[in-house]
């Protein structure tokens, strides 16, 4: 009666251990720069902090219940939601449109490709300052144009109805370059033969766009939608420079609200709680995307 001894746990996990070793460098980096700050943020969100930012009074979930009933924070959430709706679809459609144009083989197309992607090379701060001048109520270009065309003047950044739209316009402009470049890369990767065969079959431009270009581009589109969504949720620089969250809190997006709570009001507890809520929102949105949208993505 001899039994064959199963290999020990140590032996069986050899692959796992070696795999872990390969991962170790990135795990260490992630631990130091991501996991530790994240855990610290979650920890702080259960406290009120003193003036030096140390946890002082443990309050359990009070920070969260305060935020979820605070009109100011709910307004921030609403503004952030609207901002995402304003910027992401328009930004991507615009970038796709430019990418399709720039993908045509024309003389001198390189120049246009450079121009379309040029906004990528300008920092958020620099472009915000440019937009600040464009939106200026008395000397701004937009209001000058409206004046010449005899339209009523718009208080771009001062009117709560317009401020978020104005920020959205400038954000779309800033982000188009990056989306354009990625989408153009995706378009260039589509196999030329597909178009050739479809042309032989007599397919028109829009039929090819719908049946070949979009499906073949879908992995790239999916990537750019995910990234744009996350970016839109995390918008900060242009708010800080253009409106500082005003007027009437209409542009106080969540990240700006976190910044203000932490570094102007020195309330790291509530600021951390806001950060955790933002994290959960982005997590849910991204998961939903992977569940719902990714099914439609066509991988080669």
């Amino acid at each position: 009666m001899t039994t064959v001894r199963a290999p020990g746990v140590w032996k069986r996990s050899a692959n796992l251990r070696i795999g872990f070793l390969y991962l170790l460098p990135s795990i260490i980096l992630f631990a130091v720069f991501l996991f530790y700050p994240m855990i610290r943020t979650i920890y702080l969100s259960f406290f009120l902090t003193d003036q030096n930012g140390n946890a002082a009074v443990s309050v359990g979930f009070e920070n969260y219940s305060y935020l979820l009933t605070s009109p100011a924070f709910l307004n921030s959430m609403k503004a952030t939601g609207l901002f995402v709706l304003y910027t992401v679809p328009v930004g991507i459609i615009l970038a796709l449109f430019f990418a399709l144009l720039a993908n045509e083989k024309l003389k001198g197309i390189g120049f246009f490709r450079t121009m379309y992607s040029s906004t990528m090379g300008i920092s958020v701060a620099a472009s915000s300052v440019i937009w600040l001048f464009l939106f200026h109520p008395s000397v701004g270009v937009f209001n000058r144009i409206l004046l010449v065309l005899d339209f009523p003047q718009i208080q771009w950044l001062l009117d709560p109805e317009w401020a978020l739209v104005s920020i959205a316009i400038s954000t779309i402009w800033m982000n188009t370059g990056f989306s354009f470049l990625i989408l153009l890369g995706g378009l260039q990767n589509i196999d030329e033969h597909l178009y050739e065969s479809s042309r032989i079959d007599g397919a028109g431009y829009f039929y090819r766009l719908r049946r070949i270009t979009i499906p073949m581009l879908s992995p790239t589109l999916f990537f750019i939608i995910t990234i744009s969504l996350i970016n839109a949720f995390q918008t900060f620089g242009q708010i800080d420079i253009l409106t500082k969250g005003g007027p009437s809190q209409s542009t106080n997006l969540i990240v700006y609200s976190i910044y203000r709570e932490a570094f102007i009001n020195y309330q790291f507890g509530t600021a951390s709680a806001q950060a955790v809520i933002l994290f959960i929102i982005i997590l849910v949105v991204t998961l939903l995307q992977f569940k719902l949208v990714e099914r439609k993505v066509h991988y080669q």
Partner: peptide, 11 residues
């Protein structure tokens, strides 16, 4: 509320 929080956490 801000004053209350500040007073609560004061050393």
């Amino acid at each position: 509320r801000a004053i209350e929080v500040a007073n609560k956490t004061k050393k």
